[in-house]
């Protein structure tokens, strides 16, 4: 590489200065600040800031009483309950199953490991409508899985359980992919030391391994929860969308919109938006902590 003798070529770029000054100089030397800033701010403003601001302003224009009246109807409260309950259940399931899958992928060598690893990403690429369609046909009475489960009283389609099942599908990759690198980076010497000092496998896992990976598991849970709360495409197929029972908040927003009840749709959306943005802040804080722990 010609960069082996950089000093003869580019005195400006020589990394002899402190990183801070070098960065400042970068800003002055590299071209494209104006252009890239213009494109970025145009897109972010037009697509993210303005639409979400309009949403909030439209809801706020109802006044506090109007807002509560529209956002806090019995049907809306039930929808928040279903959304939150099913999402928390699904995110906990994903976090637990994801931990197991990630552990196996990192720590156990077996034929087909790479295939299993690749399959974990399927829900990221498969359209959610396809997932919803397939899950609902699998778990109905005559479906591949329903023919065994429905006689046992397990209704996986057009039910609350169905919502949880598709939400586990859409959120599982997040739970696996956050925990996987952390297990890879675990210090095995500490585990060996614990075992040599007489700890059982269970004790080693609970006292030595788990504290190390717990932040990652929590982050995986939060990411799964964020993904599950906003999910619409797959749930609308499988839940049956019964008000007060299996109607999630995004489905209620759509049905209000179709009735041209804009005020109600907007206020419910703002409640959901507030929840999502709070989760985003929490996830960001968790991930920064994770990055610090890794260093």
């Amino acid at each position: 590489m010609p960069a082996a003798h950089p000093d003869t070529l580019v005195p400006v770029a020589r990394p002899t200065a402190a990183p801070a000054t070098r960065r400042r100089r970068t800003a002055a030397v590299l071209p494209g600040f104006g252009t890239s800033a213009a494109i970025t701010s145009l897109v972010v403003t037009a697509l993210v800031i303005v639409p979400l601001a309009v949403l909030v302003v439209r809801a706020a224009s109802l006044g506090p009483h109007g807002f509560v009246a529209a956002a806090w109807t019995p049907r809306a409260r039930a929808a928040y309950g279903v959304s939150l309950g099913a999402s928390v259940l699904a995110a906990s399931t994903s976090a637990a199953l994801g931990l197991l899958v990630a552990w196996v992928l990192v720590r156990v060598d077996f034929p087909g490991r790479r295939l299993l690893d690749a399959l974990v990403d399927v829900p990221l690429a498969l359209p959610t409508a396809v997932a919803g369609l397939v899950y609902s046909t699998l778990y109905v009475e005559k479906g591949w899985l329903g023919q065994w489960l429905v006689p046992l009283g397990v209704k996986g389609a057009y039910s609350y359980l169905g919502i949880v099942l598709v939400l586990v599908f859409v959120s599982l990759p997040f739970a696996v992919r956050v925990v996987q690198p952390v297990i890879e980076s675990l210090d095995r010497d500490a585990e060996e030391a614990a075992r040599i000092l007489g700890a059982s496998r269970m004790q080693t896992f609970l006292r030595v391994v788990l504290p190390g990976i717990l932040p990652a598991v929590v982050t995986g849970f939060a990411l799964s929860l964020a993904r599950a709360l906003g999910e619409y495409g797959s749930v609308v197929f499988i839940s049956g969308n019964m008000p007060f029972k299996t109607e999630i908040a995004p489905v209620l927003i759509v049905s209000r919109l179709e009735e041209f009840a804009y005020a109600e749709a907007t206020t419910i959306a703002v409640v959901l938006l507030g929840l999502s943005l709070t989760l985003l802040v929490v996830v960001n804080a968790l991930q920064q902590r994770l990055a610090r722990n890794a260093q």
Binding site: L47, V48, V50, P51, L52, V54, L55, R58, A226, L229, G230, E231, Y232, G233, A249, P250, I253, V254, L257, Y262, A265, T266, A269, L272, L273, S276, L277, L279, L280, V283, N284
Partner: peptide, 18 residues
């Protein structure tokens, strides 16, 4: 990152409101 955490339905509604 905001579009990742906002429900697609909420995003669609915001566009309808504009």
């Amino acid at each position: 990152d905001v579009p990742f955490s906002v429900s697609p339905v909420v995003a669609g509604l915001a566009l309808v409101l504009i």
